[in-house]
Design a protein around this nucleic acid. Structure first.
Lengths: 225, 225
DNA sequence: GCCCCGATAATACAATTGTATTGTGCAGAA
DNA sequence: TTCTGCACAATACAATTGTATTATCGGGGC
């Protein structure tokens, strides 16, 4: 598979037409969503005719799946590499993720809410990696295979992915886009600061409030298990 | 404004047609996105004719703005109430948010990535509340008005909103939808557990790695400021 | 009684959009 | 050379969709 995202992107001019169309599709899908993007818009963005898009990919759905394939390919490589380095789970791994090309991250952000199977797979791998990390680091707190570990890992994956999915809103608040490679580490540091602070908060003054709130809620609403 | 979401939703049968259409629009927009939802689909979901939707709201964009108005109305009330109780920033406030009706949360989740101004406003209020909380609780760590406070608060808002935006993926991982009111507190507890654990991690063994990674990154890539 | 007005519905229409069909030129094999 | 396959493009077409128009009907004020 010819993924020009392996090395961070080359010039658009020396790409084959098929790759240029797929790159344009990535951006269009990321910007307008699976439904909002149009074949004509993609063709125009790629600088080719509508017929060529049809010729190379057959249908809009097939084009979307081709984009998904690129994403799952690139991210699987990133994630397995991070897992091998033991970097999964640690907030620094987010910096790892941020280092993939920004268009690909933007596409992933949209695909995660547009219901793409590839994006779901990426999320699952992210969550599975987080679960491994949590269970390995705090075996007593997050026993392997326990519901506690699974839930904490899922929440962790959702929260970390949230900084990607909501990168536009985040950019508006903090003044720069967290998906810009040059600013990637900055967001990771903010996450670390936040974890350090909230860790104190959650660990000290809230230990009893946890059980308190849990029992109170269960009593009031009756939602056991 | 007749928002039937104030009390958690009544029966659909005793709602006026206009309200029923807007409720159906909320769900359709949430499920298919701003572009994916169709006037005919909304009319069918509401059990009325297409002409009636047009008659009451004029255009699809106006209907979307009416949905936005409901969201901004309800969430502003929730947030100001939480702020008055000093609950903003504390992870327990997420439980507060989760207590709003699930369809409204699903709509917010979609609107946050579909580019609705109302959703952006809700996110901004969430981030502003988080910033107040962080600066008030750790004035030396997050000085009021500092970039550190703004960035940590933005990341916090994005991460917490992420559990809403990605509720579908989260549900697939943990076995239940975090937007179900009966399970709302469970997600909040998982967040607390995660904060407590990651707080240790971020606070202890990573203090020097922070500066390390930051300087290393700046040197390599040349992204100062 | 008459009228008018709002709720509701059915139909019509133009724009958009995915897809199919057809055409054109060129590079390389026979 | 001739032919064949392929990259690329232009056009056509049917389905979808937002919107405008017209019609029906029921109740309340003169």
């Amino acid at each position: 598979m010819d993924s020009e995202f392996d090395d961070g992107g080359r010039q658009a001019s020396d790409l084959t037409a098929r790759a240029r169309i797929r790159d344009a599709a990535l951006e269009q899908f990321a910007e307008h969503g699976a439904k909002g993007a149009t074949m004509r818009g993609i063709a125009a963005a790629a600088g080719v005719s509508l017929g060529l898009v049809q010729h190379h990919f057959g249908s809009k759905e097939a084009l979307r799946q081709a984009c998904d394939a690129v994403v799952v390919d690139v991210f699987r490589r990133r994630l397995t590499r991070a897992a091998a380095d033991g970097d999964l789970g640690e907030p620094g791994f987010m910096t790892q993720l941020y280092e993939t090309s920004a268009p690909l991250l933007r596409y992933l952000a949209r695909a995660l809410v547009d219901g793409s199977p590839a994006a779901a797979a990426v999320f699952d791998e992210l969550a599975a990696g987080a679960e491994d990390f949590l269970s390995a680091t705090w075996p007593e707190r997050f026993p392997p295979g326990s519901a506690k570990a699974r839930e904490a890992a899922g929440v962790m994956a959702a929260m970390h992915s949230g900084t990607i999915v909501l990168h536009g809103h985040l950019a508006r608040r903090i003044g720069f886009d967290p998906l810009e490679p040059a600013r990637a580490s900055r967001t990771g540091l903010a996450m670390l600061d936040l974890y350090a602070a909230m860790g104190e908060f959650a660990g000290s003054a809230t230990a009893e409030r946890i059980a308190e709130a849990a029992t109170a809620y269960d009593d009031a609403d009756g939602a056991p298990r």
